[in-house]
């Protein structure tokens, strides 16, 4: 195999094994801070997988939003609620056995589905028109941005008429999830506000040092 394919393989195995092993680490570890660290590194490995699969924009978004945002949020939550002994919250062995059986069964189902899907894609690939007839999708930022507006450069010729570069744009879902995110964050900030009116009245003369 060529050098590019070889290095793609090597890095896939590195990132894939890291993501899977760290995910197993999240399940297995009992200390919640170690769980958070394992999860952060697993998400970073998944971002590496995205870079490898040719979606660098998505890899950067994953690092920025997931690793840099969501995980910081989770770690803050961990710090704010970490005053309990971890041993008090162990799951007993019977529940572990049941969970592992369900997990193994689910993994088998998903693996079979994956194999079938891969075979179907390979068959569809063999019957597909050659790449010369179709503009290859570069998945650069320009292409993705224009796809938001509905102008598609990766036109697969659709048999049922219509222009080949016209596909439904994704601008409306994009705006909807932006507003949804704003509403969710405002709601979360409201839900998590401190509500100790008695403490506030008592603290009128004694200034607390909490940051508001």
């Amino acid at each position: 195999m060529t050098a590019a394919v070889l290095w793609h393989n090597v890095f896939f195995w590195i990132f894939g094994l890291a993501a899977s092993a760290l995910a197993v680490g999240v399940v297995v570890s009992t200390n919640v801070v170690r769980m958070a660290v394992c999860l952060v590194m697993s998400l970073a490995a998944v971002a590496g997988l995205f870079f490898l699969a040719g979606a660098p924009l998505l890899g950067a978004i994953q690092i920025l939003v997931y690793v840099g945002g969501t995980m910081v949020l989770l770690v803050f939550g961990v710090m704010l609620t970490a005053r309990l002994p971890a041993a008090a919250m162990r799951t007993n062995a019977g529940q572990w056995v049941a969970a592992l059986i369900v997990g193994a069964a689910l993994l088998a189902v998903l693996w079979q589905a994956g194999r079938g899907l891969s075979a179907a894609c390979a068959r569809r690939d063999a019957a597909a028109p050659s790449a010369a007839e179709i503009a290859p999708a570069n998945q650069t930022v320009t292409e993705l941005g224009l796809a938001l507006l509905g102008v598609r450069a990766d036109a697969a010729q659709s048999a049922e008429g219509g222009s080949s570069t016209q596909r439904p744009g994704y601008l409306l879902p994009f705006e909807l999830i932006s507003v949804h995110l704003l509403a969710a964050l405002v709601g979360a900030a409201y839900l998590a506000r401190s509500r100790w009116p008695a403490r506030r009245q008592a603290a009128d003369d004694v200034r607390s040092t909490d940051m508001e």
Binding site: V33, V37, V40, A44, P56, L57, A60, I61, I63, L64, V67, G68, M71, V72, V75, M79, T140, V141, T142
Partner: peptide, 25 residues
């Protein structure tokens, strides 16, 4: 040479915060 270089730099530089949090904890 990435065509998302600005986003990449922002994203990766934002990962520093984990070292800080872990150091503090």
């Amino acid at each position: 040479r990435l065509d998302i270089a600005v986003l990449f730099v922002l994203a990766v530089a934002g990962m520093e915060i984990f070292g800080v949090i872990l150091a503090g904890y």
